[in-house]
Write a protein that binds this DNA or RNA. Structure first.
Length: 459
RNA sequence: UCCUGCUUAGCUCAGUCGGUAGAGCGGGUGGCUGUUAACCACUAGGUCGGCGGUUCAAGUCCGUCAGCAGGAGCCA
């Protein structure tokens, strides 16, 4: 195994003899000299390999196609031309894997839409190499942050028989024979199914996360999440990854503090570890991306109660497509106006009306609002949603009835309030949405290796 | 599910008022002593998404179906 391209390019001195392996990104011929750019995914930059007529089989090798897998040997020397510090003067090049004529990647820009149809070669393209390097770095940063803060990661179940999750349409999991469904009283008898009851793929690990928070104090989940909504937007996928920390002995202010530290930490990590990739996105994908990220890290996040946010919007004089009124949820145009135009920095909106939020959020003393928080950031809008959880069992039961839910279905969730229950809080962050924010990519399908969306599960 | 838009060469697109199908990139061939979105010349490459209609004549107008994308809703 030869050195990675990244290591070769970071060499301090010239090298009389090195081996480099990778895929041909592009070939240029000028007179008696041919330039091959070779990449292996380790960095946004390619290694320029230079060949002339002294190379054995030079005339054949001039025609090595884009995409070919090669092993190169030669001398690494300082490059006389601009564009790269080092280049490889070839003494030998071996083609390990050729390329058929219908190789779809060309040395030009393709539409992201076309790239989605060739997800098996898409990771070879520069933009996607950068996306998936950053995806890895961001993921590592998430684990590192929580580990350093003393959080325990919990692997909450992917298959759930709990119908208490109640956040959108769920995918059913079954081993029943679809052609011969067992029936009882005219309805499908899920008692005959694998788990003896209806089962689905999880839409959230939060409720199970609360169980562990009430044992380990600070925990987080980071796993796949599934929503069967027929959503056709750039921000929705049927399968995505979600991060959900949960902290016991913690109120909404503590929740906010963790969220702010967390976002700043993971963005800082990406800036430090993927600086070249961020430069690439800054140039080709989103102008001003680097400034956006660096100012997020510096900014002191604001906190505005929902009631005040509504008042601010009402007296802004701004014309909105959707109405602004106490009791209505904020539309993304409202969120963006607040964070981009009015405050010009990340902001938490807290204390939302109880009727537009979930049953488990802690009821405030005014009995009209709940201890919820959304973190809004410029150019994206909502990126985190969280709350302090209702720990008082009488109030929780009242909330369940208020939302027409049956307390018996939530027996273990209620037990947590009877067995050493204590104030606790948490939040959820869609990993791909964060990745979109950090890379500037505008479609969630382009930050997931193999995206699942309605009608699409080819790869 | 609703609304809007798109579908023309391998890819990205242009195609005017309805009148013989176009460019760039990519492929092939040749040229150029250092290129970096290389450049220059030549060349091959088309069921204009499917079906139906209007018309002397449809890529273009109308209807319909399909696929894709975006927006809304829902949310992460």
């Amino acid at each position: 195994m030869g050195k990675r391209i990244l290591d070769i390019l970071n060499t301090e001195t010239s090298q009389p003899s090195i081996t480099a392996e990778g895929w041909i990104q592009t070939v240029r011929t000028s007179g008696a000299v041919t330039f091959f750019e070779i990449g292996d995914g380790s960095t946004i930059f390619n290694l320029q390999a230079v060949a002339d007529a002294t190379l054995p089989d030079y005339t054949q090798l001039q025609h090595v196609p884009t995409g070919a897998a090669v092993r190169c040997k030669g001398e690494l020397v300082a490059s006389p031309a601009k564009g790269q510090k080092w280049e490889l003067h070839l003494s030998h090049m071996e083609i390990l894997g050729g390329v058929d004529a219908d190789y779809p990647l060309q040395k030009k820009r393709h539409s992201f839409e076309f790239m989605r149809t060739i997800a098996h070669v898409r990771p070879r393209a520069r933009t996607f190499q950068a996306v998936f390097r950053v995806r890895h770095a961001l993921q590592m940063a998430v684990h590192r942050f929580f580990d350093e803060q003393g959080f325990i990661q919990v692997h909450t179940p992917i298959i759930t028989a709990s119908d208490c999750e109640g956040a959108g349409q769920m995918f059913r999991v079954t081993t029943l024979d679809m052609d011969k469904l067992p029936r009882k009283d005219g309805r499908i008898d899920f008692g005959k199914d694998f788990f003896g009851r209806e089962a689905s793929l999880t839409v959230s690990g939060q409720l199970e996360g609360e169980i562990f928070a009430l044992a380990f104090k600070n925990i987080y989940t980071f796993g796949p999440t599934f929503r069967a909504e027929n959503s056709h937007t750039a921000r929705h996928a049927a399968e995505f990854w979600m991060i959900e920390p949960e902290m016991a002995f913690c109120d909404l202010a503590g929740d906010r503090a963790v969220a702010e530290d967390f976002i700043k930490y993971i963005v800082t990590e990406v800036l430090n570890r993927c600086s070249d990739d961020i430069d690439f996105f800054n140039q080709w994908i989103e102008k001003g991306l680097r400034d956006k990220l660096e100012s997020l890290v510096q900014a002191e996040f604001a906190t505005v109660p929902y009631t005040e946010a509504v008042a601010m919007l009402e007296k802004s004089g701004e014309k909105f497509e959707y109405p602004v009124k106490w009791g209505l949820d904020l539309q993304s145009e409202h969120e963006r106006y607040l964070t981009e135009k009015l405050l010009k920095k990340p902001m938490f909106v807290i204390d939302y009306p109880r009727d537009i939020k979930a049953f488990y959020m802690r009821l405030n003393d005014d009995e009209k609002t709940v201890a919820a928080m959304d973190l809004l950031v410029p150019r994206v809008g909502e990126i985190i949603g969280g709350s302090q959880r209702e720990e008082r069992i009488d109030v929780l039961d009242k909330q369940l009835r208020h939302f027409d839910l049956n307390p018996e279905d939530y027996w273990w969730y209620r037990d947590l309030r009877r067995f050493g229950g204590v104030a606790h809080a948490g939040f959820g962050l869609g990993f791909e949405r964060m990745l979109m924010y950090v890379t500037g990519m505008q479609n969630i399908r382009d930050v997931i290796p193999f995206a699942r969306t309605p009608g699409n599960a080819e790869f």
